[in-house]
Design a protein around this nucleic acid. Structure first.
Length: 342
DNA sequence: CAAGCGTGGAC
DNA sequence: TGTCCAAGCTT
């Protein structure tokens, strides 16, 4: 259809004039670095560019290649990821790096199908890396593309969106096209208050013609977030505090953490304490919102000069807790303890 | 396939 | 302050 073939040239022309300069993005005429493209795609999953930028720089300074990452300790990798969230991404990143080093000669496979089989590569990431790093034609559908295409054709549904995206994806510059769609979705075709007057493809946009482009795509009804309660245990001994490593699976999996008791529908008090000690339940609370529930944590404190080593735990200097690689939830408790002491 | 899985910024 | 949302993957 001729109207559909006009979209890619318009979008690519807009991209050539308005593309953002990002640390993982090759400049015109430069060859993309597959390692940087892959790392950025994983970091950017459900995470904003502003958050990723400094974390990306720190990561590539520490582990600049697949082989360097493959040789890293898992605890170091998880600690470097701390604060970014969705920690399965870091576990899969390391797994994939080791597969790439062992089975692919330290180079990323250059086809969508082979990429798709690596840990952490879903439909989106396999297509995006194939297109952006290797120039393959691939149909790249993320939340931005879904929104742009849903509005462009006033349509909905995963299959219809994918088919429509395929119909407007060019054979050449597929990587630039994908990035152009995402930049457009981020800067112009935003969820709220889309900037249609600045849009290079507004003239053919069916949602704009309806007068309410922001109504596309239809939003799913949101589930209520339950509220839970728990207790964080701060066991201190000679300037050191007890940390544990959380189980590999599940919430904050594999991360270093303060010990916690059970998370329940009502405050559990001192249940699940990591050791017998003279616990003092503080009046202050740590609140933290996760995607699917919020947690309200009490803080229990004990200073026990006779505390023996706790199974699976490690004693960590309080003054160096910032370097422990703790998820944000636990850093909130650390800050609270410091305010209390100071 | 719906649910589980983090966090910080915008409004 | 609460709600929404951001370059999704796994089971």
């Amino acid at each position: 259809m001729d109207a559909k073939r006009r979209i890619a040239p318009l979008l690519l022309d807009w991209y050539d004039r308005h593309r953002r300069d990002l640390p993982w993005r090759a400049r015109p005429g430069e060859a993309p670095d597959p390692y940087r493209v892959w790392l950025s795609e994983v970091m950017l999953q459900q995470t904003t560019v502003a958050t990723v930028r400094p974390r990306f720089e720190a990561w590539v300074a520490r582990w600049p290649t697949f082989d360097a990452l493959a040789a890293a300790d898992e605890a170091d990798v998880m600690g470097q990821w701390a604060g970014l969230g969705y920690y399965a991404r870091a576990r899969n990143l390391l797994k994939a790096a080791r597969v790439i080093a062992a089975d692919h000669g330290g180079r990323l496979p250059d086809t969508e199908a082979v990429l798709r089989a690596l840990p952490g590569f879903g439909d989106y990431t396999a297509a995006a890396v194939a297109a952006i790093a290797f120039g393959r034609r691939a149909v790249v559908v993320d939340a931005n593309v879904e929104r742009v295409v849903a509005r462009l054709f006033a349509t909905s549904g995963k299959a219809a969106i994918r088919a429509a995206t395929g119909a407007i994806t060019p054979d050449a510059r597929a990587g630039d096209f994908a990035q152009a769609m995402m930049d457009l979705g981020s800067a112009i075709c935003r969820p709220r208050r889309p900037q249609c007057l600045l849009c290079p493809i507004a003239s053919g946009c069916e949602a704009r013609a309806t007068g309410a482009p922001e109504a596309f795509p239809a939003k799913k009804p949101k589930a209520a977030r339950p509220h839970r309660y728990g207790t964080l245990f701060w066991l201190e001994r000679g300037g050191e505090v007890l940390l544990v490593r959380r189980p590999e699976e599940g919430l904050l999996g594999g991360m270093r953490a303060l010990p916690t008791g059970p998370w329940a529908d009502a405050p559990p008090g001192l249940a699940g304490a990591p050791a017998a000690a003279d616990w003092l339940l503080l009046n202050t609370r740590v609140e933290h919102g996760f995607t699917h529930f919020t947690i309200d944590l009490a803080l229990a404190v004990a200073r026990d000069h006779h505390a023996v080593d706790v199974d699976g735990g490690e004693w960590w200097p309080v003054a160096r807790l910032d370097a422990a690689g703790l998820p944000t939830l636990f850093l909130k408790a650390v800050r609270m303890m410091r305010e209390r002491a100071g």
